[in-house]
Design a protein around this nucleic acid. Structure first.
Length: 616
RNA sequence: GGUCCCGUAGCUCAGCUGGAUAGAGCAACUGACUUCUAAUCAGUAGGUCACAGGUUCGAAUCCUGUCGGGAUCACCA
């Protein structure tokens, strides 16, 4: 039994014995003791004043004495106001360390629970490269995968690739018109950036065309006819852009024609589409690889965009859906505080929601997962509410296991990222920048100067990416965050590299212990723990429960904060006590403690997708 | 306008299943390297936890309202 449970049980028995009242174990309010007081755990005794009809101080004294007498792990106590601070005996921590160190690599990793879960954590469009927003998405998803796995789940990692639609047609058309046979290889541009370049070219060409049209007789006539009173010319044409694209634009019409040809399976169009997507995938794969993430299964929208229709037909019979006079099919979710939502157009074609219904079913057929987690930005909260509610009504067996891990948008210090205004931070550029920063900051490190070029590059990559990833993932997913590029490359303070540094120190003492041949046996003779040591042990002790909690909440930021707290605690320990100058039992104990801290830091950071260097 | 999310130090963030004097980092200032890596540590300064009510022995945390920021309310994906 864990120490929290032992204490709670002690309190339950104490309240029973002293005051004749029965309370539930998990109702016992407990916290870690604040650092300014002596103790490891604190029991709040205010709740027992009524049943005891005594002052909180007296209850604390009585309960404390009872715990001291009956719970062997409690070695001391003190009472301040209504707070009973319990000191856990050194032998308990001692034993905990000696147990843990036997298999420190596996410490905290939960046993397989036989449950299967799918995490979808990337859903890129294939018309442009990945940016900072995708990075947050991918890091969260990757970490969720790692955490779920550590908690005992079997996890299938997937992405849905939005490889069809008007956007990619725009890139295709622009390439046809302006590309002059250029390829990523011939131009030396990474494939996804290459295709993105033509997407931008399309937009430019469209804007030019639109500008010219605005000045034309037809454009002016439309403005005079349709503009609302008080609406200026600029405002009108801004609002009219989509209509223009659909009804008047030559290049817009050409792009739409291309989409229709694609849907009809036109050979040449499909060939070009495949070629452009291939280029994009090459680029994406490089980015994913640099970020250190991978997938087990890819789903393509071009394969799934027609799915779901048969389900709608089946759902009609169960009255999940209803048909309007015009032939379109809807679902009424007003009783779930949602609205009516269309699932099939009057021409029988499917919409976004329909595709997602079909895709979920396909995934269940493919893998039999009982949970599916979608890592998608919070702008789609409503869509997922509708999707999940629909799946429930369809009676899908996994419907209760559907979960939208939503996250807030990433802002820049200058405001929102807007692709139209060119303020989007490119994923590849950003990674290159943080790695370059790590290199620049390592200039005067004598440690690194002796390394080979290859080793150095590896270390800079690990440090730079740790800075970037930690900076993003330490923020709770649901919160909108401000991403300051300057802060993201910080290597000091509450950062990834700070944690790496603690690990590297531990690695250093481990190496020295190996050289000097320290005898671990004597660790069991070390009896009087220093505050810094107890603090580390308390931190370590939480790790297994934290993994389960992080998996239940799908919250990687809690792991990030834990890793930082542990590293900070170790830094304090490093300064407060000496390892190799200490007597033999203390030396052995501290080395074992360091070893476990090192393992937990490494495993904890791995849960965030962050690698540790051995030296830095 | 309806619904949902957010508002904590100058800045970036913790803390939110109610518990002690609300914590870190950055930025500023002071001190500590002949010592296991100073990418470190210790200290100073910085707060009406948006505001107003309510519940409670006790509220940053729960409830209601107000204000501010954001998202969404497409036969787009």
């Amino acid at each position: 039994m864990d120490i929290i449970g032992i204490i709670q049980e002690g309190v339950v028995k104490g309240v029973e014995a002293l005051y004749g009242a029965s309370i539930a174990g998990d109702s016992v309010s407990m916290n870690a003791t604040r650092s300014e007081f002596e103790g490891d755990f604190t029991v709040v005794v205010f709740p027992y004043t009524k049943m005891a009809r005594k002052k909180p101080e007296d209850i604390g004294q009585e309960l404390g004495q009872f715990m001291l007498d009956t719970v062997p792990q409690v070695s001391k106590f003190n009472v301040i106001k209504g707070f009973l601070n319990l000191v856990i005996d050194d032998s308990f921590w001692q034993q905990f360390l000696l147990e843990t160190v036997k298999d420190s690599d596996q410490f905290g990793i939960g046993a397989a629970n036989g449950k299967k879960v799918m995490v979808e954590y990337s859903s890129p469009n294939t018309n442009k490269p990945l940016h900072l927003g995708h990075i947050r998405n991918i890091l969260l998803g990757w970490s969720a995968y790692k955490i779920l796995q550590a908690a005992g789940y079997e996890v299938v990692r997937t992405q849905i690739v939005n490889d069809r639609g008007i956007a990619i047609c725009k890139s295709m058309l622009a390439w046809q018109r302006f590309g002059e046979g250029e390829t990523p290889a011939s131009s030396g541009i990474k494939g996804d950036h290459f295709v993105g370049k033509f997407y931008v070219k399309f937009e430019q060409a469209f804007q030019e065309e639109y500008k010219a049209w605005q000045a034309s007789d037809q454009g002016q006539a439309i403005f005079t006819e349709k503009a609302k009173e008080e609406q200026g010319e600029a405002a009108f044409f801004k609002a009219y852009k989509n209509t223009y694209f659909n009804e008047y634009s030559e290049i817009g019409q050409a792009a739409r024609a291309m989409l229709i040809q694609w849907e009809a399976g036109d050979e040449e169009t499909v060939k070009l589409w495949k070629q452009m997507n291939e280029w994009v995938y090459e680029g994406f794969n490089t980015t994913y690889e640099n970020l250190g993430v991978a997938f087990d299964k890819l789903y393509y929208e071009s394969d799934t965009y027609l799915l779901g229709k048969s389900t709608i037909a089946a759902g009609m019979e169960k009255d999940v859906f209803y048909k309007k006079e015009d032939g379109s099919v809807w679902i009424d979710l007003t009783d779930a505080k949602l609205d009516h939502k269309i699932v099939l157009r009057k021409d029988g074609t499917s919409v976004y929601l329909t595709q997602d219904i079909g895709t979920a079913q396909l995934r269940y057929q493919d893998f039999g997962v009982e949970r599916m987690i979608y890592v998608v930005a919070d702008e789609q909260n409503y869509h997922f509410q509708v999707l999940f509610e629909t799946m429930k009504r369809l009676g899908e067996p996994y419907a209760d296991g559907l979960y939208h891990l939503n996250y807030g948008m990433v802002d820049l210090p200058t405001g929102k990222m807007k692709s139209r205004e060119g303020t989007v931070v490119d994923a590849d550029d950003l990674m290159a920048e943080v790695i370059a920063e790590a290199e620049a900051a390592s200039k005067d490190s004598s440690e690194i100067s002796s390394f080979t070029e290859e080793q150095r590059k590896d270390i800079f990559r690990k440090i730079g990416l740790a800075a970037l990833k930690f900076h993003i993932i330490k923020v709770q997913p649901q919160k909108r965050m401000v991403f300051d590029p300057k802060e993201s490359v910080d290597l000091q303070g509450q950062t990834g590299p700070y944690i790496q540094y603690s690990y590297v120190r531990i690695n250093g003492v481990g190496k020295r212990a190996e050289r000097e041949g320290v005898s671990w046996e004597q660790a069991k003779d070390y009896v009087s723990l220093e505050p810094a040591e107890r603090d580390l042990l308390r931190n370590l002790y939480q790790f297994p429960a934290l993994i389960q909690e992080a998996a239940a909440d799908l919250d990687p930021s809690s792991i990030a904060n834990f890793c930082y707290a542990l590293a900070k605690s170790y830094s304090k320990f490093w300064h407060d006590v000496s390892i190799f100058d200490a007597e033999e039992s203390a030396k052995a104990f501290r080395l074992l403690l360091s070893k476990v801290v090192g393992s937990v830091l490494k495993n904890g950071m791995d849960l965030l997708g962050i690698e540790m260097p051995e030296r830095m």
